[in-house]
Design a protein around this nucleic acid. Structure first.
Lengths: 235, 235, 235, 235
DNA sequence: TAATAATCGAGACGGTACGTCGCGTCTTCTG
DNA sequence: CAGAAGACGCGACGTACCGTCTCGATTATTA
């Protein structure tokens, strides 16, 4: 009617006004406000970074306490965080948007750095995927939150766009480098190659949560792919 | 579960496992459980099969109308179906159980028949997966219902057990046949081989809903896998 | 949006479905359903008379406990009555409508019966007004609830129409009878006469809540009015 | 009352009664409270009279726009006035106190001057009451604000004490003068006489807002009261 | 033919949560 | 210091559903 959206943030504004003295300062990377030179001054009392952390922590705490996540209500989160509901709605437009940030908040930060050329990077990435899978399945939290996200198309798309897609781009790049370096055949669609590498790992980490993820899984996949599955004929 | 279960059905217990080929007659005729000869006669007015269909149809109609599924409430379903809420709760213990049946109700019924030996079956199955993927992404309904299912562990497990697992078993069997027939190397873990085949297809159908699913995708995957990705082969 | 008013009652329907066995049966007069011959059957579970009483009693209890009435929230009333909020909203569209019924519920039922002719009835009515005033000012409850009502125009109008206006009509009738019987001058507007009688009493009961209301007040007013205020000249 | 009262004003102590004719310049210039010469210096930026007027005007504007007054929130008033909420709370401790000042702000300032002796003054006062009644009922604003005040005991008491009571005192004085001058009987309680005069007028202006208030109403009341209602007089 | 019993649509029931609004206080920056 | 702005914890608003519980009215089977 009249409000509809009073300048809602929905993440990204966490940087808005660098942690004012007294706030617990959660992140690690220090972002210089110089990056946004001509932004409007943002009048009024600034949002409390403490409240923000309290909210995220409340969600995490509840999930770790074994809550089924579908059982998390904004009301309960607010109560647990010792925060008004409005303080949540001021930042996120709903449960799902909040959950994205919770996930972002606990992301293993970043994939390992990659070299400049070759198959080695592919192995690193595959291995990272495996590790991630192990971590994820060990945490009730992540299992649930991922499931929840997948059930919300918009949510998933956002997560996909910000987290998954970049990884895929990096992966494709590595494949191209490997092809260029003569480590892989050059008569195949790079996208197909990419899928051949990633697919098997994904099947195990995502689709069969009970499947083993042995230490040498990445190696075994790569070796098998390079050798091919055809029998003696190849010898 | 939650109180006094007044002889609840829950579907599935009704028809155990055998695929009730086609809908079991949606008219009004009362079907005698001839399969269970000496069951107690079930006195009183029998449940209306019409009501049952109306409920399932209501869910499907709502989903097809673009409802986000999370937005489906028992109340709305009942209202849409022109049915009392109790009539739903008499059959299913909750939304999720109902959804399982809805999915069951629209499953493409069965995977294509499989031959008796070899790599050919693998190709058939892969192709079936692809087709299924095409169908699924063309239907808002299936996309949603799958997402929802994944977000509900119990649901997903049931679906997995009834639908996915059997397929995987069949797949593994085919792999073993292929190995035995000398069509595939015999020095690799069959599970790994299976993942190498299924993974790439799954990546495209499930994880990248925008990815193309060309007609020859199954072939290309199989060929690439057999040949191997090492460039030497080309020399 | 879609509901807006699902057949709300707002009093009067209390009779709707005579107290079903087991309900505490609050009223006293037994109403025969034969009076409403062709009413629609009112399907579904009937409203609980017990809940209704619990709500009214909760309001009364809270008010008697010294609550400032402005401090009564639907939420609190529901909690006190052990009732869902919806159960209140199903019957009344808001706090004010509820309050009207609370007042109705505690009305001293009815003014005393009136004879058929004369000044005597006027005296009876005036005396009733005085008594009512005494009762009202002795009850924190009534003081508050009246104040609240006056602050809600629509409310007050309803109360005025159902309770006050009829009294005034009766009063006017009595005045006319008195005039016809030669007890009062016949060259004055009856409305004016009525105001001359009622006004002084009202000033004391309503406008000056601290003013004394001696036993003989009605008599003194009547006597003074009949005699006139002019001094010796009249003798 | 509710915490640490940081030198709150509450209006009325500031300008007592004198009407600050017109709005005292709504610009930005800080006006020195030259009117109160020897008050403590009040360091820092002085309160803006412009803000004060803006607030009062906002309330009046909203009321004139047909707002139900119960629907007036401090937030809305502040928004309408283009003022911070704190600026309101710095002056008044709550909605009601503000409303008192709004009423004071629009009082017809003063009752008409009264002579020194007799029944004539009574007539003047009664006539003033009538005029006031006409004005009040012509203004949605006054109707509402009065209703609201009556519903708030503390408010009403304040208004009563400052506005109503003095009038009654003056009235009683006039009655005494009339009795002393032999214009009225001397064997009656002056309070009763007062009520006999005021009551009928009050009934019409306050209790029956639809009742006519003809020009000669005061006269007719006085005449009837003096003559008395007994028919014998007529013979 | 009647009695018994489970079903049906409808809707009320005590609850929980929704997302919004207002309260009165606080915290920032600008004059 | 006072000003606008707006975030804060809190609590109530009126609505939607939850899963259960009556209602009167159907339909079957059993006596």
């Amino acid at each position: 009617m009249q409000g509809q959206d009073g300048e809602r943030d929905r993440r990204g504004a966490r940087n808005g006004g660098e942690p004012q003295a007294g706030a617990p300062a959660c992140g690690s990377s220090a972002e210089v406000p110089a990056g946004a030179p001509d932004a409007e001054p943002r009048r009024g009392r600034p949002r409390s970074a403490a409240a923000e952390r309290a909210i995220l922590d409340a969600v995490i705490a509840l999930l770790e306490a074994g809550e089924p996540l579908a059982g998390l209500s904004i009301e309960r989160i607010a109560r647990t965080a010792g925060v008004g509901k409005a303080t949540i709605y001021r930042r996120w437009s709903g449960k799902e948007e909040l959950f994205v940030d919770v996930v972002r908040d606990m992301e293993p930060t970043d994939p390992p750095l990659s070299g400049t050329a070759g198959l080695a990077d592919l192995r690193v990435m595959l291995e990272s995927l495996r590790t991630r899978g192990l971590a994820q399945r060990s945490s009730v939290l992540l299992v649930n939150i991922f499931a929840q996200m997948k059930s919300h198309p918009k949510l998933w798309e956002e997560y996909h766009g910000t987290v998954i897609a970049p990884r895929r781009v990096a992966m494709l790049e590595a494949v191209r480098r490997a092809v260029a370096a003569g480590e892989l055949r050059d008569d195949l669609d790079v996208e197909l190659i990419d899928d051949l590498f990633v697919g098997p790992m994904l099947v195990r980490t995502v689709h069969r949560p009970d499947a083993p993820l042995p230490d040498d899984l990445a190696d075994r996949i790569i070796t098998a792919l390079l050798q091919g599955l055809a029998p003696a004929a190849r010898v």
